[in-house]
């Protein structure tokens, strides 16, 4: 799951969450007041304002947007962009629904689920072109290729993002024991699991950072199994697209520029990300963020795909929709043009 910011948030005792959420809400209130003040300032400057909410707390997964903000790319486009972050209890699509933000990021398969739930989401740009998902296992478990997963215990997220993994196993007619895990890699580290579904830019590095060397691990990337389904894209409500298409186009253009700048200036970008994390009181781990930035940038590159940066390939859309439909995750199909409405010309 690509949304986990730090170990301290990952690990949880029994008596942690309720007071913690209250604490978060207090922080959020402060940030909202700050946002309001900022809003007033923007009005004074008479620049059109856009509120952007990434799908999780600040981390290098969203580096391009922080860079665009920090380096003034949004301002240069004539936009006043405010970045807000969701919490553990309220996701960014809720913000979108409640008009607390104008744009959010989501992974492609989740976007289908939200549309199925009745939220009128449209994809205005596909930022990540590749799948960062993989099965990881310790070499001693002897899982070097996909078929070795048959009849094995595989860890998978309890809270979603499991569709592609399940489809890969199902399409190969393997019998596996899925072991739901919440959000840590500790069950994997305990040796109980034979393999685990992880994000390359996040949990995989957490395993490395817990003392397991890369050469002690086997990796089976979903992209190598014919499931290179893209992930993070930019979404807004259809009505917002109708009303503010010009502003959205500016936002996407400046964001892509931000990602381009991040690619060329990794060290500076890392500094910007860490600053954003500190500003939001998120614990920082520089090495992990550096790893995440590297991998996020790799995900953006279309590679051999017949699309430009920021575009959604129709074949990827069809593959993802068919997969979800056949798995029963969605009941209705959507036309590509209804789902993908690019703002960039």
């Amino acid at each position: 799951m690509g949304e986990i910011p730090s170990k301290s948030f990952l690990t949880g005792g029994i008596c942690t969450n309720i007071p913690y959420l209250l604490h978060r809400m207090k922080k959020m209130l402060i940030s909202w007041i700050g946002g309001l003040l900022c809003c007033l300032q923007c009005l004074a400057q008479e620049l059109p304002q856009l509120t952007f909410a990434p799908q999780w707390l600040p981390q290098a997964q969203f580096a391009g947007y922080y860079v665009a903000q920090k380096k003034g790319f949004y301002k240069a486009e004539g936009l006043n962009v405010r970045i807000v972050h969701p919490s553990a209890s309220v996701n960014s699509v809720e913000y979108l629904k409640n008009e607390q933000c104008d744009i959010t990021t989501q992974i492609l398969t989740s976007a289908f689920a939200f549309r199925e739930a009745g939220i009128d989401l449209v994809n205005i740009a596909q930022i990540s072109q590749n799948s960062a998902l993989l099965f990881v296992s310790r070499k001693e478990k002897g899982i070097s290729e996909l078929s070795d997963l048959n009849e094995k215990k595989i860890g998978i997220w309890l809270s979603g993002f499991d569709e592609v993994a399940r489809e890969i196993i199902k399409s190969n007619n393997y019998q596996v024991q899925w072991v739901p895990v919440l959000n840590t890699v500790n069950l994997f580290l305990s040796g109980y699991l034979d393999a685990m579904t992880v994000m390359w830019y996040n949990e995989y590095d957490q395993i490395i950072q817990s003392g397991v060397n890369e050469e002690e691990l086997n990796r089976i990337f979903f992209s190598d199994c014919g499931f290179n389904i893209p992930e993070d894209g930019l979404y807004c409500l259809d009505k917002t697209l109708i009303q503010r298409r010009g502003d959205l186009e500016k936002f996407v253009r400046a964001s892509l520029k931000g990602w381009e700048y991040a690619k060329e200036n990794k060290e500076e970008t890392l500094g910007i990300v860490l600053e954003e994390m500190k500003k939001n009181h998120v614990p920082t781990n520089k090495a992990h963020q550096a790893w995440m930035l590297d991998k996020a940038l790799l995900m953006i590159d279309p590679g051999s795909k017949n699309v430009k940066k920021g575009e959604l390939a129709e074949s990827d859309f069809v593959k993802a929709q068919n997969m979800l439909f056949e798995a029963g995750n969605i009941k209705t199909r959507t036309a590509f043009k209804e789902f993908y409405k690019p703002v960039m010309k």
Partner: peptide
């Protein structure tokens, strides 16, 4: 983890923020 492994365990440290 103890249920899965059948062994006693110490979980990773955490902050009781409340």
């Amino acid at each position: 983890i103890p249920v899965a492994t059948g062994k006693s365990s110490w979980c990773e440290p955490y902050h009781d923020t409340g």
